[in-house]
Each structure stands twice: as structure tokens, then as C-alpha cells.
Design a protein around this nucleic acid. Sequence first.
DNA 1: GAGGCCATCTTGTCAATGGCAAGTTAAAGT
DNA 2: ACTTTAACTTGCCATTGACAAGATGGCCTC
Lengths: 182, 182
Amino acid sequence: MTQSRAYHHGDLRRALLDAAVEVMAESGPAALSLRDLARRAGVSHAAPAHHFGDKAGLLTALAAQGFELLAEALGNAGDDLVDTGVAYVGFAIRHRAHFEVMFRPDLYRADDPEVVAARTRAGELLRTGVARRTGRGPDVDALAAWSIVHGFATLWLSGALPPRVGPDPEAAARTVISRLFP
Amino acid sequence: MTQSRAYHHGDLRRALLDAAVEVMAESGPAALSLRDLARRAGVSHAAPAHHFGDKAGLLTALAAQGFELLAEALGNAGDDLVDTGVAYVGFAIRHRAHFEVMFRPDLYRADDPEVVAARTRAGELLRTGVARRTGRGPDVDALAAWSIVHGFATLWLSGALPPRVGPDPEAAARTVISRLFP
DNA sequence: GAGGCCATCTTGTCAATGGCAAGTTAAAGT
DNA sequence: ACTTTAACTTGCCATTGACAAGATGGCCTC
């Protein structure tokens, strides 16, 4: 109904992407199988190939969608730098499957035009969030900010953080980011 | 010759781990195939199963080895906090394959005793590196430090950083970490 | 030194997967 | 009505991970 016309299935492209997100959120990207997605959508095993070409094609679409969602999340975060960082972490937690694909370029075609456009947009939003603070040059601040939120999100998602950090990732992230920008 | 006795092959266990590191350093963890490793070692396709049980078993051994290497790298880094952080990044760059597996617990058995022991050891070395500095409590400092070095390493490995950062990851990491601990 | 034991590795097989080729269905245009 | 074309199916093949059963060869004991 939304972007590809409704034929036999309705909106298979979206259904496959949604199913992929669901599977990966539970079992990680390694557990993804095109045939399983097709089964969940109630179509034949070769149907996904029509929409995405191959597995990398599906993950490319997912990565593009992820960068768009990230840009949206950063755009809604307001002007404060710490809020932007917390929004980055919140996006990673809430859209775990997207996030995990986005930063694994060996899984998809990172030079895809849609991916490049969405990634550029998200990157600029992230950088403008840091623009007004200065220290050793804005580049260093931006890189440090990106590193600390990306690292925190990654560590949280991988389960590497000790329980002592607490159950609320965004609250913990706020504390950590404030340590960088007091 | 080193740990498993030399029978038909010599030291198949080590050969398979080395081949796995080589493959993953080039093409990422998704490209890993037990049969390919067996081919490279010149043994039959079922030989790896004897040493590692299954694919997760091989990656478990690789993760344990990785945490040991990380502990070693951190131990050699000296007392300075920034040096410890740079050593963390240096480890991630130099042992990319290990690093990428270590923080992807869906790929291996993270509760394996050897893995737990090595990870605990590395974790303590990382935390003692931060111990002497205090700010909002050592926990926050340790978490911030870990996040920033882990995030920088991850972003560098994924190729997400702009070329402007320069060609030397450890030099750039030093600048970024110094931003957190001036 | 003969026989047994066991770690090491091989051969054979099976289900599942990704990807390709060729055919089928049905909506949409002319 | 006829054609075109997107959307999907059926059938196939090579590769892979995992398992079962067998072969090989060093080591140990009596």
C-alpha cells in the first residue's frame, strides 16, 4: 500500500523487511535466512529475490532505512548536545537490528546511492549537534562524541557491560556523555 | 607442536584458528566457512568438527584467544590511562578478526569458562588503568573511557570515519582520548 | 611385542541455504 | 481483446554445517 503496489501479497517488500528486523532483533544478523523470511510472509522461497536481488540487497535496503531512522531520531532530539547523544544511543537500542547492519559494511552494499544519501544526512545532523562547542577544534569534539555514544551503544547491545551500569541505557548514556561535555 | 600433539597434520587446531583469522581479516566473519578452512589446511571437511565441535566452538576458541591477546596488550601498555586506551585501539586494529568476534556473543558461547576467565582478566586490566583518576566516581570514568576507545575502534574498523581523521588510527585515538582525560 | 585403546582424521550422507533459470499469474495499459 | 510487464512460483544446483560410521596410527600395558 505504501510504496510497492499491492499484487498477490499486498506489500511483500515491507513485510520482508519487517520480518528481517524481527528475526535479527531476536537472534542476530547471522540467523537471517531469506527462505525463512519468505516462509514467514507466506510466499515462495524465491520471492525475496525479486524485490532485493540477493541477501546483500535486502540488507542494503535495511541499512538505508536505518540511516533514515537515525537521522529522524537525531532531528527530533533538540539542540542540546547531550540530548543528541542520548538519542543516538536510544536509536541503537530501539532499532537494534538496523543499527547492527548499518555498521557492518561487509554485509551490504555501502556504496548504494540511497544508503550514501541517508548516511550523509545522519552524519551532518550528528556533526551540527556538536558544532557550537569548541575545544581542541570541533573535529576532535565531534569525533570524541561520536566515539563515546557509538561505543556505549555497541557495548550495551553486545551485553558486555556489567549489571552495575543499571537497567536504563539512556540514563547511563546521559551520565557518560556528560562526563565528556560537563 | 605447541599444545595439541602432532599427529597426521601437525597442529591442526592452530592451523584452523590461524586460517580463520586470515579469512575474517580479509572478508569479515560472515565469509567464514569451516569447509574452506579445512581446505586451506589440507584436511577433510569434517576434521574441524573434531577439534571444535561446531562453528560456534571454533569462534569460542577464537574469542578466548582474543581476550587473552587483549589482556596482554593492555598489560604491556604501561600505567598511563591514555596509553592504555591507545593500546585498546591498537589491539582492535591489529587483531581485527579477534576483536570482531569477541563482541558478537551471538556467534559463540560467551559463557565458556576460558572465555569468561580471559574476559575478566582483560576487564580488570582496563578498569585498573582508570583507577587513579577520579571525577564523578571511578565507575563513570571507566565506562566513559571504555566507551570512547571501543567506539573509536569500532567506527574505524567499519570504515565509517571520514578520511579527514587521517591514516593513523592510534594517533587519532590518542587525540580523542586526551579530549576525555585532559 | 602383541594386542587394545584412543585421539586424529576420512568418507558418506542429509537437510537447509543462496542463487539462478524458466515458467505462471494477474494487473494495467492501449 | 491483446500485449506488456511486474509479481511471484516451481525446479534445480552448488555450498554449507552437522552428524554417523569407519579408517589410521601413535601410545600404553601386560
